[in-house]
Design a protein around this nucleic acid. Structure first.
Lengths: 159, 159
DNA sequence: GGTATTTCATTAACATGTTAAATAGATTGC
DNA sequence: GCAATCTATTTAACATGTTAATGAAATACC
């Protein structure tokens, strides 16, 4: 885990953005996005771990709960997981009986993935805890600020 | 790579945020942060790859260029890399002579890491390309919007 | 209809993410 | 001074990230 939040960072060089030098990492968008994500996920990971879930598995399970049966490509894209990672994850999720796999009869290349009742039960276990953590976060950050941030992040994703 | 940006996502369920169900993934902060990051990094990764660099290595090298010699813990925290990952990365960066390692004489537990002239040369090669990509991004997203987004991300990191 | 091309999923190989344990050097308390 | 404790780093083990290659099925083209 990255601990984050180093209050005083008296860097030697605080130059302005001149030609060649790289942007200060503190004002780099990719790094700021990563830092924010780490900070937020640090609040959720311990809860997920108590349910033997990691972030990626939780994303996959949720997407399936939201959208129903999907093929692997669709699921990978929506869950922001790469196909090779998804292939490996599906094995362990299947062993835990959280998902079910079947072949598409109309297109033999496709694997169709759906959530099982056991998987839905797990979602129903985790969701209230997740929602509570999210409410805490929204309370600390501000509801309207949160909405604005989500809008801006959506806009960045489309640039 | 995640392709991202699926323009029309006709989800079956677009319910409001009632008690138990998890927030729609499209409005989840962790997922939105991840999606935005993927979208941005997709623009930078090919350029870094041409210099045989991945994101993590680029972060580590930049931090060292900014801050000078650091011990492993400081470097890991600032570069948002976990200590075990950093340990492995330092080996390959040392083989490429981009960094130099030495033991702290006052505290035998600490490893001090610094950038080499070769490492500085690499930063000077990559920086102009990175800066150009960043300018493109800022132009597309808007300078003021970008500044506001960075401020909000910093605020989220401190919640 | 048969070949070339494209597409979906998986496998391979190596890097990083993540948690826990091990190692070794510093610090504390007596 | 020494045992107990704490701290910085590394190692271990397994999961996911990433790119390239493979295998198999669908589609395009003629």
């Amino acid at each position: 885990m990255v601990t984050g939040s180093d209050p005083l960072v008296g860097d030697a060089n605080t130059h302005d953005d001149k030609s060649g030098m790289p942007r200060q990492t503190r004002r780099s968008l990719p790094i700021s996005l990563l830092r924010a994500r780490e900070s937020v996920m640090a609040k959720f990971r311990p809860m997920l771990a108590r349910h033997d879930m990691n972030e990626q598995q939780w994303r996959v399970i949720r997407i399936l709960g939201e959208s129903g049966e999907l093929d692997a490509s669709e699921l990978a894209e929506r869950a922001l997981v790469l196909s090779p990672s998804l292939t490996r994850m599906l094995k362990s999720l299947k062993v835990r009986k959280l998902i079910a796999l079947r072949k598409d009869k109309n297109d033999g290349r496709r694997t169709l993935i759906s959530i099982t009742p056991t998987g839905k039960d797990l979602i129903n276990e985790i969701s209230p805890e997740s929602a509570q953590l999210y409410r805490d976060l929204e309370k600390a950050f501000g509801h309207d600020e949160m909405e604005r941030l989500l809008d801006m992040l959506e806009a960045v994703s489309k640039v």
